[in-house]
Simulated scan of single mutants.
Amino acid sequence: MRLEWLEDILAVAQTGSFIEAAERRFVTQSAFSRRIQQIEQHIGVELFDRTRKPVQLRPTTETQRSRIEELAEALRQLVGDLKQGAKLSANRIVIVSQHALTATMSAMIIERAQRTAPDAFFRLRSANLDECLTQLFSHQADIAVVYRLPGSSHPVRTDFVESVVIGREQLVPVLARGRVDWFLGCLSAGELPFVAYPADVFLGQAMERTVLARLRRDLRLEARVETALTFASCEMALAGVAPAWVPTSLARRPIEEGRLADLSDHLPSCDLEVIVARLLGPRSELEEQIWLELADRSGRLDGS
């Protein structure tokens, strides 16, 4: 059963006239009559009582009218969804980013991309570093946005992938302002309770190399809480559980509001680069446009 046939049947049922139904369906009366005959021949059932004025559905057809209306609406919705899906598929970009970046920079990344592709559909995924690269290499994502330690080697292979630094970030030590005296007392005693990142995730490894290894020389480090989520680390610091190292983009507002204290005068920070990466090889025009906008060095996300 075709959608146009259902709409033809309903047009007659609603108007009670083949002439008015033909006008509603934007065809001549003769063409419309032939279509109705074709429908009835295809089904093998006479649908209308033509002896009555206005024209009425036969009783067997009338009992199925609500089903015909529901089916027509469902088919219209299906057609619309298929068209929309095809449009989105042809105009879709999948961006995968590390969890911390998804939380702090995803809005800026999408806003930058929309400058050159305002009608594009963006699918944003969040994953740890290894999964970001896996999705990139397996073509599940078009572009990856990940961290890198400045001057360090990175698992993004240059023979398969091209990458560009688009911004810089810092993990800064913060704590609830009302707990700063407690923190200073811990330092005086040679102790440092802190919120840790797991050793098997990128931020945990970066913190160990750039911050914790230095502090361990002079202080007894005690991880009070461990979480892979920067949002959770920030909430722990706000609750006064222990100092936490969180991205400046995440900590800036609570610091400005006076809820968090920046402990950078007492503890080192961790510098990070934000890079975009994509596979080498053929790509769509849309992906190329978005890549050029994101990789534009004159528009770094951090304004540098």
Rank of each mutant, 00 (worst) to 15 (best):
F121A: 14
A189M: 04
S188D: 14
I255F: 00
V94Y: 05
L82A: 09
G204P: 05
Q98N: 13
I143M: 08
S30T: 11
R217T: 10
S17T: 08
V165Y: 09
V225G: 03
I110C: 01
D81V: 06
H139C: 11
T230H: 05
D159V: 10
R220P: 07
Q289E: 12
F137W: 12
E256H: 06
L6I: 11
R115K: 14
W182H: 11
Q205P: 04
A196V: 01
T60Q: 12
A74I: 09
K53L: 00
Q170N: 12
V276D: 04
V274P: 03
L71K: 14
G85C: 04
V146R: 06
A237D: 00
A113W: 00
L184I: 08
C234A: 15
R217E: 12
A117K: 00
R179Q: 14
V156I: 15
D159E: 12
Q38V: 07
C132D: 02
V174D: 11
D159T: 10
A244M: 05
R157V: 10
A176D: 07
Q77L: 13
D200R: 09
T102D: 08
C186Y: 14
A21E: 08
G303C: 01
A206I: 00
L149D: 08
V172S: 02
V165G: 10
E256Y: 04
R220E: 13
W5D: 14
F18D: 13
E287L: 15
E69Y: 06
I166P: 04
L260S: 03
T60D: 15
G258R: 00
Q84M: 10
F194A: 08
L71H: 12
Q98K: 09
V174Y: 04
S138D: 14
Q289T: 09
V276S: 02
G281E: 04
R224Q: 13
T210C: 07
D142R: 05
L221W: 05
G303Y: 01
P118D: 07
L171Y: 09
A295M: 08
S17L: 08
P150V: 01
L187K: 06
S33A: 13
S138R: 13
K53A: 03
R2I: 11
C234Y: 02
T116Y: 04
D81K: 14
W5P: 01
A199G: 13
L124S: 13
S126R: 10
A107L: 06
V94H: 11
R25L: 01
G151D: 03
M108Q: 14
A244I: 02
F231A: 13
V145S: 06
